[in-house]
Nucleic acid binder design. Structure first.
Lengths: 339, 339
DNA sequence: CTGAAAGCGCTTACAG
DNA sequence: CTGAAAGCGCTTACAG
């Protein structure tokens, strides 16, 4: 493996001059530059990234901290992790994947050993122990998910208020006034995931404002119980004319439950959903929905982190909370009751 | 951030001695060791990993190369990526996630800049361009998925021959002689994914050996067409008494198709499947199945890579291909026709 | 057992 | 514009 010294020798210049063309931070005359570039090509040279990191104290690596609380999380987290990775690569950064069950430990380790320049925290909760560590360690970080108190850390999330707005509006426009709401499990609520609370609260509030009745029920944690819960809810729907879904497994299993209860969409019941784009695409979910646009949100997240990394240590800048406007995809699963 | 020099000063010893207790590669008398450890704690010291990497030419990082050919891949790859990450962490390694669309480029970049000590390649194909690069760059690597020609690279995979055996045996024991086979899409076959070919070929062969009739059909690529394809296959099943599934989306959507065709499992038709553990768990798939045990296979993969990393450069050792014995989970979805 | 010295492969003031 | 020197924070023969 050729080093910068080999290149310098080959080109007949000093190592500093080679470094200048490598970093591009100093002007070099075209002739010497060309000699150096020729030497680089000839020797098939690439800078040793660890050495550069040591000299510059910048690793060009960001860490993604994901906590998997169960097998279903692996599937739910996948799009985020991959999209974040793509976004980071596009900015010239590599990605360290931190899946340790003890996230606090992982954050400390990776920060104090200087393995990463910054962090992205996934599936943030309202009381997230990782937040305290991140702000105490003073490492640039962005939260994917806006908790109640972000403790001065930047955060990006879907605008769940707007999402609830759009869904309620859509239903209201088509004359629906009595709606079922399949929300996340009791355990998910208890765990305090920000996105669970935010969407739930926003939906309840918006429905109330619109003068709609919202009958909420929790999906079970164990997917095995999901079919019967869904069927029960459908049978007991009373005067409800529509169903709002905020549970991935429920979105997947609803079609079966509908058939079992002899209901068809949108004739007998209307359905709207909030779920991931990948779920929609890979299983062709047929519901009018807002999709948590992981690509867009991931890009925004990385972009904010990059801005933080670019600014000098000393900069005092306010905390950034970016809420992305959701988009609704109309798949015709809502019946128009107004005509 | 304290350095090794600060610790040495604090403890009143040389940097080499501090290094000795850090690496544990040289004996240090208890009293000095204690002084050093006290200094480390007092100064809250952690070794700078980049500096260590530069000195030892070992990064303690492995790269995971995953190629996503579509949104469904994100979901399919998730368990592997996370399990590999866990297994690597358990061995003291960190994980760099390489999702670049140009995998060859990513491999070159990360290898030549010395960012990783080794690589794991996911979703390996029979003619995989990444293989050529890996063997030419001479970096330790393990394939997750055994291609037709591994070009001297170590590989780990589920033993699809044994998997086919178990499934065919199970059906045969219960008297089934005429079976449908929902195999992967034409495109997946054309792409040459090793696991697609291996299971398909093994199943056909084993069925033939057992004197069973196997009517195979491809699942469509577009999940939107999947329901009608499944229903058609079920309606046209003729004398077939069972169905073997090798497509995740099909496994998820089959229940709906069954209801639409008025069939129940196992009374009217028996079903066995080969799919991921996470899918089973997160959607409670009710079929007797062999689950591609990502945790076990990932552990084996990392373990082989670790062995390669541990051995001296010069070691000449044969290539390792490890095929893990599949386990069948009986969920009672096969009817016993023999009694 | 302990330490002084050299080295890992870069970058970056500082002179010239 | 170019180069000599120092430094980033470690480890590792080599002496003692």
């Amino acid at each position: 493996m050729a080093t910068i010294g080999d290149v310098a020798r080959e080109a007949g210049v000093s190592r500093s001059t080679v470094s200048s063309v490598l970093t591009g931070r100093k002007p070099v005359t075209p002739p010497t530059r060309e000699r150096i570039e020729a030497a680089i090509t000839k020797l098939n040279f690439t800078v040793n990234h660890g050495a550069r990191a040591l000299a510059t104290s910048r690793t060009m690596v960001i860490g993604i901290v994901v906590q998997l609380h169960g097998p279903e999380f692996a599937l739910a987290m996948a799009p985020w992790v991959f999209e974040l990775s793509d976004a980071a690569h596009a900015q010239g950064y590599d990605v360290l994947l931190l899946t340790d069950s003890d996230a606090v430990d992982a954050i400390k380790r990776v920060t104090r050993t200087r393995r990463v320049d910054g962090l992205v925290l996934l599936s943030v909760r309202d009381e997230d122990i990782r937040l305290r560590v991140v702000s105490s360690l003073d490492i640039p970080a962005v939260l994917l998910g806006l908790p109640r108190d972000s403790r001065g850390v930047d955060a990006v999330d879907l605008d769940f208020g707007a999402a609830a707005d759009r869904l309620i509006q859509h239903l209201h426009d088509k004359g629906h006034r009595d709606v079922l709401f399949a929300r996340r499990s009791v355990k998910m609520f208890a765990s305090g995931f920000a996105f669970v609370r935010r969407f739930n609260d926003a939906l309840m509030a918006r429905a109330a404002e619109a003068g709609m009745r919202l009958q909420a029920f929790h999906c079970p944690d164990d997917p095995e119980h999901l079919p019967s819960v869904l069927e029960q809810a459908l049978r007991d729907r009373g005067t409800a004319t529509a169903l709002v879904l905020h549970d991935d497994a429920a979105a997947v299993l609803l079609p079966t439950a509908l058939i079992h209860t002899g209901l068809s969409v949108p004739e007998d019941i209307s359905v709207v959903s909030l779920h991931s784009t990948e779920l929609s695409r890979s299983l062709a979910l047929p519901f009018t929905s807002i999709e948590s646009d992981s690509a867009r949100i991931s890009k925004a997240t990385v972009s904010i982190l990059m801005r933080r990394l670019a600014e000098p240590e000393s900069t005092e800048r306010g905390v950034v909370h970016e809420l992305l406007t959701p988009r609704l995809t109309d798949r015709g699963s809502v019946k128009d009751l107004t005509r």
